[in-house]
């Protein structure tokens, strides 16, 4: 249509010697490679590749088991043996109780760390004076290995829940504060200035602009830090606990029940993924404005 009109007003025929009515030949693009820059796989293919990766992992594991000498095989149990151990844990040894105890410790301590760390991080991100007041001290704390507090916490609190929760709290909060400090500083200063020129008070600018602007990245920081929380949980439970996933692993270790240890590790992995999903869902529900929407 357009071409015929172009011809009618005497425009040059860009198709050259070929007839204008034929469609131009298809462009032959070079073959797509597996390692292709800028390529985003379709969601279907991403699922396929993800499954392939997981299968590869279990395959290697299984292979490792069968390549191990018969006498040492119990130290690298097969996938089925670990699965059976997992089943036994839940069906016969009330593992669910340990899992729930561990989850309780994680969530209580992480909630406490967030309740303290998020406001401090936001205040430090907003106000240079608060930053100057707290940053040197908090930076020092970040370099203290949380595990080094275990003896102290045991002396103070004994082998109680409080000791474990305190360890998680110490292990998480200082990094959480520094991440949230960065999240808050990343809020464009023009947003605050715009609010001020509209007559917002300092409090209104803080609660009405800085907080909502920083919240999505703050939630991301929390998601990353709760993963670190799991690390400290296991350490705490291994050192001195009667229950919880770490305690189960420690006990199994004493009897060389490698399959049970692996089943417990696997459980932690699954719980980690579930936590991650929980945070992502929360992100979508709480901050729909931050989600790319295609319509």
């Amino acid at each position: 249509m357009q071409e015929s009109r172009a011809a009618a007003i005497g425009a040059p025929n860009h198709a050259g010697h070929e007839a204008a009515n034929d469609p131009a030949p298809l462009f032959v693009a070079p073959k797509e490679r597996f390692l292709e820059f800028r390529l985003q796989p379709t969601s279907q293919r991403a699922w396929m590749l993800g499954t392939l990766g997981a299968l590869g992992f279990f395959g290697l594991w299984e292979l490792g088991h069968y390549l191990t000498a018969e006498s040492a095989r119990k130290f690298l149990p097969s996938v089925e043996q670990v699965a059976r151990a997992l089943y036994v844990l839940f069906s016969e040894r009330n593992f669910l109780h340990d899992v729930l105890i561990s989850c309780y410790r994680i969530f209580v301590s992480f909630f406490a760390a967030s309740a303290v760390g998020v406001p401090i991080g936001i205040l430090m991100g907003c106000f240079g004076n608060v930053r100057a007041l707290l940053n040197p001290t908090l930076s020092g704390w970040r370099y203290l290995p949380a595990a080094s507090f275990i003896p102290l916490l045991l002396v103070w609190f004994g082998p109680t829940d409080l000791a474990k929760i305190a360890l998680l709290f110490i292990g998480v909060i200082f990094f959480l504060i520094s991440l949230i400090l960065d999240n808050t500083r990343a809020v464009p200063k023009e947003l605050v200035e715009a609010a001020l020129t509209m007559g917002a008070s300092r409090r209104e600018a803080l609660t009405g602009v800085v907080v909502p602007a920083a919240m999505p990245t703050v939630l991301d920081s929390m998601r990353n830090m709760i993963a670190v929380g799991w690390t400290y949980l296991v350490i705490a439970e291994i050192v001195g606990a009667q229950d919880g996933i770490g305690a189960v692993m420690m006990r199994a270790g004493r009897f060389l029940n490698v399959d049970t240890i692996m089943a417990a590790i696997f459980t932690i992995g699954v719980l980690g993924i579930l936590t991650d999903v929980l945070f992502r869902v929360a992100q979508h529900l709480l901050f729909p404005w931050n989600v790319e929407r295609r319509s």
Binding site: E190, L191, E193, T197, M198, G199, V209, P212, A213, N290
Partner: peptide, 16 residues
Amino acid sequence: GPDRGMIFQAYTSFPW
């Protein structure tokens, strides 16, 4: 103050 309204070069409409 709101007696002097300001439009910035950066986008300042609140994304939330």
